[in-house]
């Protein structure tokens, strides 16, 4: 016999309907949030002590803060060899392609964008297009692009567009930001929120060893 799409829907409905699903209590969530906040606080303090100077060239003197983007935060132990922030660009218009060049020593990198919900960001680096990403609260990260940066000059073209829409449209006012950081051997990086000077520790917790 064959299994149909409807069978699959029914199975998922039935399997998840059998258990004692009663939701979770707000108090329990609050306790968990306090634990996470404490852990992030200590991790960021260690990061700041270990090598915040590496990104000082584009950051202001403000202390580093946690920036939530799906809760994946590299731990301090894995970021002793902090990656170098390469560029942080801020734009005030969407609907048109912006181009920027920057120098790198070559290799793996991480890209971080902060943009309005309902839009997506398209990025092309050295002529190779990366998958567009939809904007979410807290920003969007390309944590493990397959391509590598060139040693020397790199060219990045970015555009903010309506989800599913064309890269080029009638320009409209929108504040959005893109930053690029080189990654250390374990994939952890520190980048900066342009305009605010906040240092952001990002990276895949698994890749970094969690």
């Amino acid at each position: 016999m064959t299994i149909t799409e409807q069978d699959l829907r029914e199975l998922l409905e039935r399997d998840s309907g059998d258990g004692p699903y009663r939701g979770v209590a707000v108090a329990g969530v609050e306790r968990r949030a306090r634990r996470i906040r404490r852990r992030r606080g200590s991790a960021l303090a260690a990061v700041a002590a270990a090598g915040a100077g590496a990104v000082a060239m584009i950051a202001t003197a403000q202390p580093p803060v946690a920036y939530d983007w799906g809760g994946v935060l590299a731990r301090a132990a894995q970021v002793d060899d902090i990656a170098r922030a390469l560029i942080a660009a801020e734009y005030e218009r969407g609907g048109r392609t912006e181009e920027v060049t920057f120098k790198a020593s070559g290799g793996r990198f991480l890209l971080h964008a902060i943009c309005p919900e309902g839009r997506q960001v398209t990025v092309t680096i050295n002529g190779r297009e990366m998958s567009p990403r939809a904007c979410l609260p807290g920003g969007v990260v390309w944590s493990n692009p397959k391509m590598l940066l060139r040693a020397g000059k790199n060219t990045m073209r970015v555009s903010l567009q309506v989800i599913g829409g064309p890269a080029e449209a009638k320009p409209y006012p929108a504040r959005w930001q893109v930053s690029v950081a080189e990654r250390d051997g374990k994939g952890c990086a520190v980048t900066v929120v342009p305009g605010e000077g906040k240092q952001v520790v990002v990276g895949n917790a698994d890749t970094c060893g969690g």
């Binding site: 969530v29 968990r32 949030a33 996470i36 799906g70 809760g71």
Partner: peptide, 8 residues
């Protein structure tokens, strides 16, 4: 965990 992170 997901809701705690969302709350933050």
């Amino acid at each position: 965990t997901a809701l705690a992170k969302a709350w933050l």
